[in-house]
Simulated assay, not measured.
Amino acid sequence: MSPDTTRVLGQIERGEIWCGPDAARALAARAEEQYGGAWPRPTADPAPPAPDGPE
Rank of each mutant, 00 (worst) to 15 (best):
Met1Ser: 09
Met1Leu: 11
Met1Glu: 09
Met1Asp: 10
Ser2Pro: 10
Ser2Met: 01
Ser2Gly: 04
Pro3Val: 06
Pro3Gly: 02
Pro3Lys: 08
Pro3His: 08
Asp4Pro: 04
Asp4Ile: 15
Thr5Met: 13
Thr5Tyr: 15
Thr5Pro: 00
Thr6Leu: 11
Thr6Ala: 14
Arg7Val: 09
Arg7His: 13
Arg7Asn: 09
Val8Ser: 00
Val8Glu: 01
Val8Thr: 03
Leu9Pro: 00
Leu9Val: 02
Leu9Asp: 02
Leu9Tyr: 08
Gly10Val: 01
Gly10Thr: 06
Ile12Trp: 00
Glu13Ser: 08
Glu13Thr: 10
Glu13Arg: 15
Glu13Asp: 11
Arg14Asn: 12
Arg14Tyr: 03
Arg14Val: 05
Arg14Pro: 00
Arg14Glu: 13
Arg14Ser: 15
Gly15Lys: 01
Glu16Ser: 11
Glu16Tyr: 12
Glu16Phe: 10
Glu16Ala: 14
Ile17Asp: 01
Ile17Gly: 04
Ile17Ser: 02
Trp18His: 12
Trp18Arg: 13
Trp18Lys: 13
Trp18Gly: 09
Cys19Gly: 01
Cys19Tyr: 00
Cys19Asp: 01
Gly20Asn: 06
Gly20Trp: 08
Gly20Val: 07
Gly20Met: 07
Pro21Gly: 09
Pro21Lys: 13
Pro21Asp: 14
Asp22Ala: 14
Asp22Ser: 12
Asp22Leu: 12
Ala23Lys: 03
Ala23Gln: 07
Ala26Met: 02
Ala26Lys: 07
Ala26Thr: 12
Ala26Ile: 06
Ala26Cys: 04
Ala26Arg: 05
Leu27Asn: 11
Leu27Arg: 15
Leu27Ser: 12
Ala28Thr: 03
Ala28Phe: 01
Ala29Cys: 05
Ala29Lys: 10
Arg30Ala: 15
Arg30Thr: 14
Arg30Cys: 11
Ala31Met: 15
Glu32Arg: 15
Glu32His: 13
Glu32Thr: 13
Glu32Gln: 14
Glu32Leu: 14
Glu32Phe: 08
Glu33Asn: 08
Glu33Ala: 14
Glu33Phe: 03
Glu33Trp: 08
Glu33Gly: 09
Glu33Leu: 11
Gln34Ile: 10
Gln34Leu: 15
Gln34Trp: 07
Tyr35His: 10
Tyr35Cys: 04
Tyr35Gln: 06
Gly36Lys: 12
Gly36Ala: 07
Gly36Arg: 12
Gly37Met: 01
Ala38Arg: 05
Ala38Pro: 00
Trp39Cys: 05
Trp39Ser: 04
Trp39Arg: 12
Pro40Leu: 02
Pro40Arg: 04
Arg41Ala: 14
Arg41Asn: 12
Pro42Glu: 13
Pro42Cys: 05
Thr43Lys: 06
Thr43Val: 02
Thr43Pro: 00
Thr43Trp: 03
Thr43Glu: 11
Ala44Tyr: 05
Ala44Cys: 03
Asp45Met: 07
Asp45Lys: 12
Asp45Ser: 05
Asp45Leu: 14
Asp45Trp: 06
Asp45Gly: 01
Pro46Phe: 02
Ala47Trp: 05
Ala47Asn: 07
Ala47Ile: 02
Pro48Asp: 11
Pro48Arg: 14
Pro48Gln: 07
Pro48Gly: 08
Pro48Glu: 09
Pro49Gln: 07
Pro49Trp: 03
Pro49Val: 02
Pro49Ile: 03
Ala50Lys: 08
Ala50Trp: 04
Pro51Ala: 11
Pro51Ile: 02
Pro51Thr: 08
Pro51Asn: 04
Asp52Asn: 02
Asp52Val: 12
Asp52Ser: 09
Gly53Ile: 07
Gly53Leu: 08
Pro54Trp: 09
Pro54Arg: 06
Pro54Asn: 06
Pro54Leu: 12
Glu55Val: 05
